Amino acid sequence: MDRFITGAMLIGAAILLVLLYRHLRRASVERIAQRAGYLDTCRALMDTPRNGRADSGFARLGGHYRGVEADIQVLPDTLTFRKLPALWVLVTLPGPLPVGATMNLMIRPTGVEPFSRFQTLSHQLDRPDDFPEDCAVRTDSRAHMPPEDLVRAHLHIFDDPKVKELVISPKGVRIVFLAEEAQRSRYLIYRDAEMGVAPLAPDLLQPKLDQLIALRADVLNAGVQELRA
């Protein structure tokens, strides 16, 4: 009888292990598919969209938006000292611009933003009048900063409280915004930091692309005027 009970317990334990493995395997497959498809609903915004994938498994989307090359990256930030893990979206219009320095404007920098080279820029500037009170501004060359009036004309980008960073550089322009944070109760109780279950909504991305298009046009126009002067 003891052998029968022991055998039954072993069989039951084996069945539970198999079921657990299948559950974890299915969850892993679903997570991979969710991350890979996170930008699928945004493909319609692009002409000739191109799909890619980052090391994190999250999708990367390229293509042309209103005739301009665009690049969309998704970056999870699960650093343990953060209040909650976060999912950042990097919206970039890459391409040469007539500016001689990189200018980076960031809201509440912590010094460890994984998506930014903010801390590597050598000069921190005093916050100009009318700039967001909780922002910091850095550059790699004070003498070749983009015109302050040009930047000020686009500060409405930060009317969206989820916008974290604006970059103007010789290589292009970028907006970084917070797409979502980990669900608080699941993270605090289970340390579950999974994000990106639902795809990114196009109406969250499109305004950022439009804002960058307008900013890029003003930077190009300022460069033309400088050449004519």
Rank of each mutant, 00 (worst) to 15 (best):
A101V: 08
H144F: 13
M9G: 13
L75V: 11
L10T: 05
L150M: 08
P109Q: 02
F4N: 11
F4M: 15
S56D: 07
E165K: 00
V68I: 15
T110W: 06
L220P: 01
Q119K: 13
T78H: 10
L84A: 15
D130W: 08
L220N: 05
G12V: 14
G57W: 00
V18E: 09
L166N: 00
P199I: 03
R3Q: 11
F131D: 00
T48Y: 12
P128Y: 04
R60A: 09
I213F: 15
L19I: 06
V29K: 15
G95S: 12
L166W: 01
H64T: 11
L16F: 12
R108H: 06
L19H: 04
L220Q: 11
A214L: 11
M46R: 04
R31M: 07
D77N: 02
I175H: 00
L125F: 04
Q124Y: 02
T48G: 14
Q206V: 07
K164T: 05
R191D: 03
L155Q: 08
M103I: 15
D55A: 12
I175N: 00
M106N: 07
E148W: 10
P207G: 04
D160H: 01
N221H: 06
R60L: 13
K83L: 11
S141Y: 05
E113G: 03
R31T: 13
L10G: 02
R174H: 00
D55Q: 12
